[in-house]
Simulated assay, not measured.
Amino acid sequence: MIKLADFNKEYNKLKNEIDREVLKVLDSGSYIMGKEVRDLETNLSNYLGVKAYTVASGTDALLIALRAASIGQGDEVITTPFTFVATASTITFTGAKPVFVDIDEETFNINPKLIEEKITERTKAILPVHLFGHSADMEEILRIAKKYNLIVIEDNAQAFGSLYNGKKTGSIGDISALSFFPTKNLGAYGDAGAVFAKDEKICEKIDMLRSHGSKKKYLYEIIGYNSRLDTIQAAILNVKLKYFENFIEKKRKLASIYLEELKGFVALPVEKENCRHSYHQFTIRVKNRDELFSYLSSNNIQSAIHYPLPLHLQKAFNYLGYKEGSFPVAEKVSKEVLSLPIFHTLSEEEIYRVCQVIKNR
């Protein structure tokens, strides 16, 4: 079986280091906000060049980023309908309204040419998603945000390690949210996340929000959350972060095999000239997608559909009043996308095998 992701392979390669660091935490007895958490925040800050605050999950990272930006009741946040549900559900948690904008057909990211027409007096922020590891068009998004005095919150959950105009995604907007879900470019062995910000007041608010709204123990200035990263997860992530750039380069090399071998057989992901794609997912487009999904499965190859139904057509978002045809590009793409195995511990032989099966169908 060629898996979509294989955690055992990675763990076995890093086992000695990971076990040693986890045992240190267990021996220390410091399981909440221990030294390893502080070390990870320093390491993440150094990597992105923006202040990092770890939290319990990528979803919490988005929610806390929105709250720290003072998004609340009656506000509107512009985002994409073609993304994981947390991008939009966290907007609703704040009392704000997600306002969807259709996507660019090449990158699957929000189409900045369509943003301005959706801006109203209630618009407070733009929340672009760097989907599958390719950056959104941040230059144009920042231009629009500046023109209308909007905050930019990057959903960087799928693109840690990606570049846009030489800058790391997650360091370009005002705030960014990161997920360390196990399948992500830098994955924990459980749920974990981080929020990054530049402004000191926003940073202070993030720090309070993740710990019940408190600066000082038992004194609460705002209503916050219990969203702290486990020290054990921080220890694991510190080990993996040392090898992170190697992980990305390995994935890019595997992607280059797909790009060469599958040319002319399926519609391939693009990498814009000014970007470095980190290939969180290698997502192709193909007619009769469901047939290919089944065919790969019958040949012991896992694949996944990211995402089968855009958010504007999900029952949970019926209240927004969108209907079929509201975002034709997202709807078209959702019927054709299929993500192939790409994980830094996959072998080149396995990638060639996937390609051969697709070409033989």
Rank of each mutant, 00 (worst) to 15 (best):
A255C: 07
T90A: 05
P269D: 06
K216T: 14
S298V: 04
Y279K: 11
L26H: 11
S214E: 15
K217H: 09
K216A: 12
I305V: 15
D191I: 02
E249T: 03
K217S: 14
Q356R: 10
T92Y: 01
I202D: 00
T79Q: 04
A157S: 15
K168Q: 06
E204Q: 07
G170V: 06
R285S: 14
E10C: 10
A235D: 08
T94A: 00
S57Q: 04
S70Y: 07
L48C: 08
N43D: 15
L127M: 15
L150Q: 07
E10T: 12
S339P: 02
F317N: 06
H280K: 00
D230K: 11
E221D: 15
A56H: 03
F343E: 15
V239E: 12
F327W: 10
E41R: 01
V333K: 05
E140N: 12
T87C: 02
R289F: 08
L4N: 04
E116G: 08
L229H: 01
N274D: 14
I18N: 08
V270M: 05
K113Y: 02
K251F: 00
F282H: 12
G173M: 04
V286I: 15
L40W: 01
G34K: 01
D39R: 01
F93A: 00
I175Y: 01
I119W: 11
E76D: 01
L63R: 08
I91N: 02
N185H: 02
A255V: 05
E36T: 05
D199Q: 05
